[in-house]
């Protein structure tokens, strides 16, 4: 355990030395909040279903943070570790490469949580952000979404031949989810065709669940979304376990 904590600590330091990792997880979401918050304000409006614009957008931004750590940082780091034979090097030590992989999951989870906390603090101070739901439901929802997105990221990392392929796949998955899942732009404002596309994106269900729970709906109103997300966790982690290439 002590040894594993050491691996986590080193990975944590390395993660924090990468400017892009920190920018997109910690700074970019706050920039989004400042931009759209200034435009829409946080007064309750008809369009937002009687909620303030910021109150209704922040859960989506949190899902965006999960997507950037899970679909960009995680697969790109791991595929780089494989390409550079770092995973292979770990195979011939008493530490197994799976510990490196798990420590990456831990590090990216911590980064996501910190990104969320910064967003909440800025939201509270600048826009008087409100949370209408049940804390426990929100925490459970957060981790269901996180695990489902991370398991997709793991499969991308496990299957990509090299960093170039991983980068291409990550972008192809990440950007549609960023703009078309309701994470950054409300689906209510989108035409029918986009709404249909959004149904194919896993993050859409995450955003629906988290936004719903955030705005005070019951956790069990979203059993459909929860089942889809849990299904993604099971299927993608199994596939990742089965097909992960260590070298």
């Amino acid at each position: 355990m002590k040894r594993f904590m050491k691996v986590v600590l080193v990975e944590w330091k390395l993660n924090n030395r990468n400017f892009l990792n920190l920018f997109f997880a910690l700074v970019f979401p706050v920039m989004m909040l400042m931009l759209f918050g200034t435009m829409y304000g946080n007064e309750p409006t008809e369009f937002m279903g009687g909620f303030g614009g910021v109150d209704a957008s922040v859960p989506g931004y949190i899902c965006m943070i999960i997507a950037v750590t899970g679909l960009m940082t995680l697969p790109l780091t791991l595929s780089q570790y494989r390409e550079r034979k770092i995973l292979k090097r770990f195979m011939i030590t008493p530490v197994k490469p799976i510990e490196l992989l798990v420590s990456q999951l831990v590090v990216n989870t911590i980064t996501t949580v910190i990104g969320m906390i910064i967003l909440l603090i800025v939201g509270k101070i600048v826009f008087d952000l409100h949370f209408f739901g049940n804390i426990l439901s929100a925490i459970i929802s957060f981790f269901i979404i996180l695990l489902s997105i991370f398991s997709i990221g793991l499969l991308v990392a496990g299957l990509s031949k090299n960093v170039k392929v991983a980068t291409a796949i990550s972008y192809i998955i990440y950007f549609p989810m960023l703009f078309l899942s309701g994470a950054t732009m409300p689906l209510e404002a989108m035409p029918e065709s986009i709404v249909n596309i959004s149904k194919a994106l896993p993050l859409t269900y995450g955003v629906r669940l988290f936004k719903g729970v955030w705005l005070g709906n019951d956790f069990f109103d979203y059993t459909g979304e929860i089942f889809i997300l849990l299904g993604i966790i099971v299927i993608f982690s199994l596939l990742a376990t089965r097909f992960f290439k260590w070298e």
């Binding site: 050491k6 550079r84 770092i86 030590t93």
Partner: peptide, 25 residues
């Protein structure tokens, strides 16, 4: 073992890498 063509993380310090390996054995 020194494997052919292994590289390490760019942004890891020599002392950190060595320390990590020390903790393994």
């Amino acid at each position: 073992v020194q494997l052919q063509e292994t590289s390490y993380q760019d942004k890891i310090r020599v002392s950190e890498l060595c320390d990590l390996f020390m903790s393994m054995y």
